[in-house]
Design a protein around this nucleic acid. Structure first.
Lengths: 133, 133
DNA sequence: CTGTATCCATCGTGATACTG
DNA sequence: CAGTATCACGATGGATACAG
């Protein structure tokens, strides 16, 4: 793209073997999904997002919003008032995506415990040989 | 975890606001999904994966497989033959995940063009002011 | 065939400070 | 209020070489 890298994946250069990765590259960022979720019920302001998403920095909020906007997933509406008011909303495309992500959430919740157990078992199995104690 | 960081996300420390991120942290790695897809039809060998997934390095293949195994998403079966033969297969849990990811694929394919257009439009709109010439 | 170890370039993200 | 600029650091992943 035109300006220099400001952090956060800028663009996709190579063709994809499978299109899932294409979605993931848009959504796998640390904050993208949470923004999508936060904006799912309706337009939301910058500061509301900042307060609603635990631990996000202003920088990352801006950056992630810009990427989502660039991909046509959110719209940015500036109300020329004093003080300024900017609202972000999901596009129809993003709302579909949000529903699909809900399936992933369901899967995660169904398998959360199972995964945790698998990890624990694996870590016990593969710990650095101080078994005998 | 026990051994030192070898690259690729090691573990999850903090609690999650939403469980989607939990899935994504497991699947957002550059190669995880492609391995899941490649192993979806049935058990597959290390070298088959290596050849089937364009551009993956042996290192990343191993690393990603280990993580998937740790999360209980793939099983690793060693056939004690000469030469050695190792097969990786999806667990039932991973097969469910694979189906869910398929929905994401569908979304991606439906909206691929639309996203590309959004990007193009955005990039034109926000290029670094050398418009006149 | 199926890995592991090491080195290193790059990317993503947080901290902090400044602005219209 | 809603950003942007700069810096710094660890995580991520590629290249390469070695091994059971």
């Amino acid at each position: 793209m035109s300006q220099r890298n400001t952090g956060v994946t800028a663009q996709v250069v190579n063709a994809y073997a499978c299109p899932v990765r294409e979605v993931l590259d848009r959504v796998a960022g640390k904050w993208s999904v949470q923004i999508l979720v936060a904006a799912a019920h309706g337009p939301i302001r910058f500061t509301e997002l900042e307060r609603g998403i635990e631990g996000i920095s202003r920088r990352m909020l801006t950056l992630t919003l810009r990427n989502l906007e660039r991909d046509g997933l959110v719209t940015r509406t500036v109300h020329p008032t004093v003080p300024p008011k900017v609202e972000y909303a999901l596009t129809p495309m993003a709302q579909e995506l949000h529903e699909t992500l809900q399936r992933l959430t369901d899967w995660a919740e169904r398998n959360r415990v199972h995964i945790a157990e698998a990890r624990a078992a694996y870590d016990v199995e593969h710990r650095p040989e101080q078994l005998g104690a």
